[in-house]
Design a protein around this nucleic acid. Sequence first.
DNA 1: TTGAAAGCGCTAACAT
DNA 2: ATGTTAGCGCTTTCAA
Lengths: 338, 338
Amino acid sequence: MKRITILDIAKELNITFSTVARALNDHPAISAATKQAVRETADRLGYRPNRVASSLRSGKTKIIGVLVPRLDVSFFSSVLHGIEGVMNENGYTILLFQSQESIKQEARGIETFLRSRVDGIIASISLETEGNGSYSEVRDRNIPLAFFDRVPQGLDVPAVTIDDYQGGFMATEHLIKAGYRRIVHINQYRDINIFNERLRGYLDALKQYGLPIDENLIIKGDFSLEFGRQCVRELMAARIDFDAIFTLEDFTAMGVVQELKAIGKRIPADVGIVGFANEAFTNLVSPTISTVDQCTVEMGEEVARLFLKLLKKGDYYKHKPEKIVLTPRLLVRESSSR
Amino acid sequence: MKRITILDIAKELNITFSTVARALNDHPAISAATKQAVRETADRLGYRPNRVASSLRSGKTKIIGVLVPRLDVSFFSSVLHGIEGVMNENGYTILLFQSQESIKQEARGIETFLRSRVDGIIASISLETEGNGSYSEVRDRNIPLAFFDRVPQGLDVPAVTIDDYQGGFMATEHLIKAGYRRIVHINQYRDINIFNERLRGYLDALKQYGLPIDENLIIKGDFSLEFGRQCVRELMAARIDFDAIFTLEDFTAMGVVQELKAIGKRIPADVGIVGFANEAFTNLVSPTISTVDQCTVEMGEEVARLFLKLLKKGDYYKHKPEKIVLTPRLLVRESSSR
DNA sequence: TTGAAAGCGCTAACAT
DNA sequence: ATGTTAGCGCTTTCAA
């Protein structure tokens, strides 16, 4: 099947291709009759506008690059769901790239986006990324850029995040108000802003309620269910006294719950638990796990909208970048209700 | 910052732009010295090849359109994770579109892909799609096309699926062997091939083990946790005797478990449960739920590889389309172990 | 209201 | 080993 171009339509109708182009783009100077004829012929011949050609000429691709760490993590796929939904409604298509949490792969993604001449980039940085990664170059080329959740520290760019500080604070405050006093916090060993913020929230809540800060209660490691179990084992082995655990994310909390149940601790009577992320399972397991909801789909939609605003403004880097901070929702469930 | 083209590099070095183009593409006829000089200048000037131009000229975009129902469903985001991983390694980028389970939106997706001149399309059809949807047109245009999991019935195309028949059979057989005799099956009201296959597996297992088929035990509805609960309530209200339930997917199974526990039934002693999909929570709840694993990431990787083979062959629609059927894994857990 | 013509940045056939 | 040339299919300016 031969590829139909505006030239073929023009020949059919004995007009020039530029008239066809204008008719298809609903140019005001073209007569209704011509437009009608052009559209019918286009349909009849099975014409599909060639976006590649139009992009080359116009310099706009109507494509947005989205760079996420990995899509088998429900947080990122939910956000992507939100981004795609809004972008789609506004006539943009998503070019997708996973960094797989690798800084090198992240750089490849940006390179690909640059070569593909995307109209802009939305990203969440990899765990390995330090400083600005390859993002300064995007900025230098005046390509609009927005981040969600994980934002490079050094770059003053538009971003949508949740208030991780507040999330950490709320979780801890809730545990304190429920009467827990020796609250363990399991964090991550890497220097990632959002994780540091949750820790800061934890510390400030303790301070505000006059509780001592005990370094023995602050654990850093990698996050996983297994790590949660290990933490409990180590706390017990070291005979460290505790009556609650606030974890950086839900899988760790799940591990904590499993191990505590295994050694006969009652939840929430003996130990209160709060996780982070509102993974689907937290509301299905027994006891249901209290957690902090990160408004994933909303975050995606917000970053997409913020991005569209940015695109309209032009001069992306001349204005003060807009930052949207969503308020996390504390979901109190059985694991901390006593 | 001015956009650098091969012409700028050529001017710097006093050679022609075609030499530059060849040097950049590592053409054998170009001297090592020239290549070296060109690459250095390209780096120095911050040159990025323009893929849009190269695509227009070459007719290849190195972009694959991926059309999925929705990314907030973990099945699809996991498969996409697999697809992107393999495609990425092979130099392809993913253009993403969600049909949101709507046939109209699905058609828009295909239209977008066609206009974007993607090198091929990988898709899983929407629940609304009947017949071939808009896919016949893709075929007519000789654009390579492959499906995963949900495949249009009428089109003979390459596809990766799991053996849903076998999944249904294994689940049912396992329940029979565990001593359950009155096995309910909760299915979906729509005429979707993969769902029908699971039902067929259920029926055949009953037949093979000489158990009667009781229409009262076959329920059709929409899938959700709430529907699972409702089914149990209705079975009880109608005083229908049953000792096991095999559901079409895990959330329904979860609802079934919750409702049964609520009315004091013991699992697996009184009622055995098997779900389908191996959602993350099935291994975390209590009792852990037996389920059928769909090999999601593997499915994505397989469909990507199948696709790459297809691309190499050319003449996509002249060969007999390859179909890969993955064997599902039955995961026996507490909910059906007695 | 329509036509003519230039050019976006490459690839690739042909020429030297 | 390098240069010349002709497009790919559009958008857009200028002219009629």
